[in-house]
Each structure stands twice: as structure tokens, then as C-alpha cells.
Design a protein around this nucleic acid. Sequence first.
DNA 1: ATTGTATATGAGCAATTATTCACATCTACT
DNA 2: AGTAGATGTGAATAATTGCTCATATACAAT
Lengths: 201, 201
Amino acid sequence: MTQAFDLNMKKRPGQGRSRATVEAVLEATAQLLAETGYGALTTNHIAERAGVSIGSVYQYFPGKEAVVAQVVERVVDDVLADFSTGLLAGPTDNRRIAAVVYDAIDRRAALVRALTYEIPFLRDLPAIANLRGRLLLLASQIYMRTLAEKPFTHPHVASFILTAMVRSAVLDSILNPLPGMTREQAIDTLAEIIARIAGPG
Amino acid sequence: MTQAFDLNMKKRPGQGRSRATVEAVLEATAQLLAETGYGALTTNHIAERAGVSIGSVYQYFPGKEAVVAQVVERVVDDVLADFSTGLLAGPTDNRRIAAVVYDAIDRRAALVRALTYEIPFLRDLPAIANLRGRLLLLASQIYMRTLAEKPFTHPHVASFILTAMVRSAVLDSILNPLPGMTREQAIDTLAEIIARIAGPG
DNA sequence: ATTGTATATGAGCAATTATTCACATCTACT
DNA sequence: AGTAGATGTGAATAATTGCTCATATACAAT
């Protein structure tokens, strides 16, 4: 069940119009994924939404999956950028961390939903492995000291599961929220949970 | 984006062969989902694997989605049954809870993966709402006392997020594990995390 | 202007898929 | 045995979709 597609672009877009074409295709794909999901995504729809002919799509991408893979790559980059700027904007207390993660996902919730829950080859994409690795590293750095004081039996397993927990919990809270739950409540609670696991701060 | 399919069976299977036919269709669908995923699932494949004609499938199900919905319902029932028996089989300490949840998902990992990550209308199914409600209730009952001693600011939000966390973390640990991580390590760590959040016991 | 290259077009092909329906077969009951 | 209703069959259909390719247009360089 490993992905068996060619996900590389056929042609690096040279200089002029081609850049714009590729841009339009990626933007259209992101829009359609957010609006109608992966199941309804067709290459012809992508071309139509992008205001580009179907032939042009295949000039730069070997297939539908390759376009989606590029969109995933962009979203991952954007999310990681949001994390960086958000965490640099002030002291990294638990509440800020919860808020930054929450907002980064909330800002592009529809797209993230489609990518997370509907793309069968998602976990085979290098961008996703990259994302997971980065998050793991980030969490380790932030909580290194506090977790050294209250160590787990299997520290690296704990880092892994905790990262998965926060990521999944935030995702789930946004995509399938408890009715009536507000952003503030979610962030408060996430911060409190983190405090219990890793200590205050 | 609410599901717009008819998910009810056309005919309640009467008595004899029809029961077996429906059974074979559901079993074949579960097998195919586990083996090849939702994307490769076709009604003709279902019929073939079930050893039944395509016409028979449509005699009892209005469409592919309805078959999948029934499979989901069964898996949910099975998982909940595993929880019940597992938690009744001894004292409900943190480690047992972690182990029961872990094993219930691990036992049918491939099928759960396909259902969780590939079915776009999953969250619209009543069975899933039911599952979430039951889990929430279960968690509340188990941790009522301990969480009353160390209360959260928003108790019902906390129950919701904690349930989501455990569910997602277990799912993620099984479906996308840290290389080299064993079942024991995962369960140990989950138990320790639960203990930190909700107290020992 | 002219020539060569890069880019864009979109009708159409081949393959796949969900679904139907006219017909066969089985089972139960008299 | 005869009959009626339930159940099973699978070739055929209509729709969709990924993708190609022959052709057209834009651009750059001389």
C-alpha cells in the first residue's frame, strides 16, 4: 500500500506565463479540496477553476495525485511558518502554544480536513513525514527541561505520543467540535492539559 | 456537505438465503476495505468477493455508501463490545484502560484505518455520533471522581478533548507508529499520560 | 520578418464504475 | 405437480474521468 505515483513535476516552469499557470492550478486545487473534498476533485474541474486548459495541467503535473501532493507540501510549509512566527511572537507558555497550534489549523480548517481525512496516500508523502518530524523536534525542544524533571519511562515514545495527542486533539476539536465549544474554552483546556502532563510554564 | 445518500436497506432480508447474502456482502466489503482501501472499493468487486451477483447487492442496499455505512455500524458495535468486556474483566486502572483501547483498535487496524482516513461521509454517520457519545460517557464515568478532585476550568470541554486525545493518540500510535515502538511501550506511556492528567488509579 | 521554442488548447479516446432490468432459479405451500 | 412469491443473475447502459495529442498561439532571438 505504498504510494505508486510519480509525484514530480514534469517540467520546471520556465519563467513567464508558466509560473502563473502552475500557480493557478495549485490555488484552484486547494480551493476545490476545501469546498468539495478529494472525492469530487477531478482534473477537469481543476483546469476549469484555474481558468486553464486541461492540457496545461498535464504539461506540468504527471497526474492528479501530483497536484495534490504539491498542495500538501504548501500547506505543510504554511502551517510550520505559522508555528514559527507564532511562537517567536512572545513567551512560549502553555497557553500560547495551544493558541498557536489551534489557530494555525483553524485558519485553514476546511482544507486541512480534506487533506487529513480523505487522501489515501497522505502518509506516504515526504511532506507529511517532514511535518511530523518537525513537530516532534519542536515539542522536544520546548518541553525538554520540564519533562526531564518529571521523566516518562520511555521518553522518546512519550514525546511521540504527546505530539500525536496534541496534533490530533486540536484537529478533532476544530473539525468535529463539541457543540457550543468556543475557541477560548478549547485553548484554555488544551493549556491546562499540557500543564498537567509537562508541568506549568 | 451533509451526507445525501439513502443509507437504509431496501429490503429486510426475509429468512433464508437472503440473510447469508447480506452477510457475505458485508464481510466482503470489510475485507476489501482492509485490504485495498475505500478508493479501490467498487460494487462489482464486492459482489465478486462475496460470491454473489452484482444484482443481489442492489437488492438489499441502495448503493455502495449504504454497504459501507452498515460495515461502519458493525465495527462500532464490535469495538464498543470489546471495551465493555475488556473493562469488566478486572479493575479499571489506567493501564488496563490504555490496553483495552489499544487492543480494540489494533485488532482491526487495517479496517479502522480505511474507515477513519478514507471515508468522506464518515462523520455524518449516526454510528459515529453514537460511538463518540458512548466514549464520552464512558470516560466521564471512569474519571468522575478523580477529575472532581482536580477540576478543569471547563469540565465538559475537558472531557470532550481528553476523549478525543486518547482516541486519536491510540489510533495514530497504531496506524502511524514510531518505528521500533512496541505495544508495551505504547500502553505504558498512555497509562502514564492518563495518570498525569486524571490522577493515579 | 522569420524561425525556433515554449506554452496553451480542448475534442476525443479508453477505461472504469454505479446501476438497472429482463430473465432464471429456488423455496414454500397447496 | 403446480403455482406464486422470493431471491439470484449478469450482460448492457449511461455517465464519469484521467489523460493524450494534433494543432494553435505567444514569445524570444536573430
